[in-house]
Write a protein that binds this DNA or RNA. Structure first.
Length: 675
DNA sequence: GAAGCCAAACTTTTT
DNA sequence: GTTTGGCTTC
């Protein structure tokens, strides 16, 4: 044990060591600035809990912000603990943790264990349907209501633990005696949201589906009502605590065993307020867990002091922030560059040429994979991508068009979802006519009403037609749906036999001749076909992962795969891509927790930083701070004077975030301004 | 009744 | 650039 001690404790500085050795039963907050080694502290603390305090690995729960972060921690812990023990640790996002236990204990709160996870896309489509009946009323008032807005209101409500019943009651009370006609647009919007929230919930339950927020809502419910589900927990660690919302906090409290709680966070890096994250949770924890101690990690091991100074100058402008320091023993390094460009095309060209120049100038010491371009939003990537392409610079886009949202992936997943959960209508509707079988809107409506009458799923109903146990419907559909029913049945057989997800997908592709379908309907079928192959790779990887982790064997491999694909933040192709030597393009949000030798941030302008549609200016400032602190050595901020915004050329000013910094620290920062 | 084609509108951040 | 909606053709 002592040699193991030396291996991880010896590598820590004083504050880090204090955090790791902090008594397990005393609640702990680790406030960790960027690059202060928080992952190292977290993994070391987990190792310490096991090796020094003798906690069984299976009694420790570590919650990360993304599944990728969990994976990273797993890898790091394997050298300290070995594969077996790491496999027993309960690690993942709040969502994946809930999903995992809901599968096991669904029955305790009246759910079926084969529930589907409804993604944002599907939820939005459902909402569009539900909002249709309000169209006329809204048109009369000369207003429209966007499903995205309603969904975010519902999501916010769920994040605060407000059920559709609470929501509706509140609205009814508020607008008692006011008719729809007399309401102003905002009131009407609230009223409609309340009504639709209710219908949305009913519909999801009928579909045997949970949306992302439901995973947390029902997770809390289950853990509260079925305490046996958390009997294993002796310590919970939560990473990125500044970005947890109310229900996630509630979840943490529910799972936590007495005071055995460790959280890691940094108020300065709170960038998910729009997802109902509450910095207040830090204070709440101090109240709810008496005796909570605090350890500050203030030494930055990532960046040069020049990068750090600029970053700190930016964040210091937030007058309400909790004062913290961050220092580094690294040398000053190169002064960050602030570059003005006339147009976005010039800006993109500058970025591309500069990358090429630096690679050549350093004689290959810097490679493409050492560069990251961090954007406020994805749409900014277009010009930059094409300019990189022009210069022959390879790039990868982190979380741009997300892998599991591609149509070819969704098509195949729809079939698998139907196989696992026939009640999940969004999947049924997609699969039944892909490839086109001549089953259109009218036919589907007829199927829906007949299925409703028999109180069975749509799939079960067309199976009856196929078997001849129910009469065919008005536009004869028996012939059209027969290949579909046969395919589903074949896949269902495979699933029940516990075939691997990869095998099932292969069979599916063959059965519906999906490659031919892609060729026929998509110009870029080749890259789409490559994604299909990637999906199969993902399925194989997930299966091996599950085997390594001795996952519950009662579950079919298919269900395990479906869950992994719903909750996966991005294609797990980053492992292969990293070795491909490519420039990374990512949003600032997606860059959280990552680092690169060179970081470039375009569009440092009013309207982008801060983004025009975010009322919380301080959060926007923190976002720029997060982006800047990703840089180890070189940092470039660029901005233009004119930019296309939603199809219109507009004059734009340099971001006030840097404007203030330049005027207040002109000498210290000495940004090289090249025009 | 379904599918395919063209014009128009819309673009924050994500589990 | 991408998705949606309306229109025409099969």
């Amino acid at each position: 044990m002592d040699s193991a001690h030396a291996s991880y404790l010896g590598l820590l500085n004083h504050a880090q060591r204090q955090a790791v050795e902090h008594p397990p039963a005393v609640p702990l907050q680790i406030l960790a600035g960027p690059g202060s080694g928080k992952t190292k502290v977290l993994t070391s603390r987990i190792a310490h809990l096991i090796l020094h305090h003798g906690l069984p690995p299976s009694s420790i729960c570590a919650v990360t912000f993304t599944n990728k972060a969990a994976k990273e921690m797993r890898t790091r812990l394997q050298t300290l603990l070995g594969k077996d023990r790491v496999g027993e640790l309960k690690m993942g996002t709040f969502h994946s943790l809930c999903a995992r236990f809901l599968r096991k204990y669904a029955h305790t709160i009246g759910l079926s264990d084969n529930f589907s996870i409804c993604d944002a896309d599907e939820a939005k489509k459902i909402m569009t349907q539900l909002l249709k009946k309000y169209r006329e009323l809204l048109a009369k008032k000369d207003m429209t209501i966007r499903e995205g807005l309603v969904m975010s209101k519902i999501s916010q409500a769920k994040a605060k633990g407000i059920t559709h019943i609470n929501f509706l009651e509140e609205v009814v009370r508020k607008y008692q005696g006011v008719s729809l006609e007399d309401m102003n647009p905002l009131e009407l919007q609230e009223k409609i949201t309340a009504e639709v929230y209710q219908e949305y919930e009913t519909l999801l339950r009928k579909n045997n589906a949970l949306d992302f927020d439901d995973l947390l809502v029902y997770g809390v419910k289950m853990f509260k009502e079925w305490r046996a589900a958390v009997a294993w927990c002796q310590h919970i660690l939560v990473d990125e605590f500044q970005d947890t919302n109310i229900i996630q906090y509630d979840l943490m409290r529910t799972i936590a065993h007495k005071g055995c709680v460790t959280i890691v966070g940094d108020p300065d890096q709170s960038i998910y307020g729009w997802r109902s994250a509450e910095i207040e949770n830090l204070n709440k924890m101090k109240r709810n867990f008496p005796g909570t101690c605090e350890v500050l990690l203030e030494e930055n091991y990532r960046s040069t002091s020049a990068v750090l100074r600029l970053s700190l100058a930016i964040i210091a402008e937030d007058k309400n922030r909790i004062q913290k320091s961050l220092h580094t023993s690294h040398p000053a390094g190169k002064t960050p560059t602030l570059r003005s460009c006339s147009t976005e095309t010039n800006e993109a060209a500058f970025i591309a040429v500069e990358i090429k120049r630096l690679v050549a100038y350093t004689g290959g010491l810097l490679q493409f994979e050492d560069f990251a371009i961090l954007l406020r939003f994805n749409a900014l990537s277009r010009v930059i991508e094409s300019s990189l392409q022009k210069e022959g610079i390879p790039c990868r886009i982190l979380g741009g068009h997300r892998f599991f949202e591609r149509l070819e992936v969704k098509d195949l997943l729809a079939y698998l979802q139907v196989v696992d959960n026939p009640d999940f209508y969004p999947a049924f509707i997609r699969a039944v006519n892909t490839p086109s079988r001549g089953v259109g809107e009218k036919t589907l409506l007829e199927i829906a009403s007949k299925a409703e009458q028999c109180r069975i799923s749509h799939l079960a109903f067309i199976e009856r037609i196929f078997d001849g146990t129910a009469p065919d419907i008005k536009p004869p559909a028996k012939r059209k749906i027969s290949s579909f029913v046969q395919t589903i049945r074949a896949l269902r057989d495979l699933a029940q036999k516990k075939s691997s997800a990869a095998d099932i997908i292969q069979q599916l592709i063959k059965a519906i001749d999906y490659k031919e379908y892609l060729k026929r309907t998509q110009n870029d079928w080749e890259s789409r076909w490559a994604n299909v192959q990637e999906l199969i790779n993902f399925a194989t990887e997930v299966t091996t992962d599950a085997q390594n982790r001795n996952a519950a064997s009662s579950e079919t491999p298919l269900r395990f795969f479906l869950q992994a694909s719903s909750l996966s933040s991005e294609g797990d192709n980053d492992g292969t891509d990293a070795t491909n030597n490519k420039v990374t393009i990512a949003t600032c949000h997606a860059a959280k927790g990552l680092e690169w030798p060179v970081v470039m941030i375009p569009s440092v302008e009013e309207g982008t930083f801060p983004f025009a549609r975010n009322d919380d200016v301080e959060e926007e400032r923190r976002l720029l701070y997060v982006a800047c602190t990703r840089a180890k050595g070189l940092l470039f901020l660029t901005h233009t004077c004119r930019r296309m915004i939603a199809g219109q050329q507009k004059d734009v000013d340099r971001s006030s975030f840097v404007e203030n910094v330049i005027s207040k620290y002109p000498v210290k920062l000495s940004l090289s301004i090249i025009i």
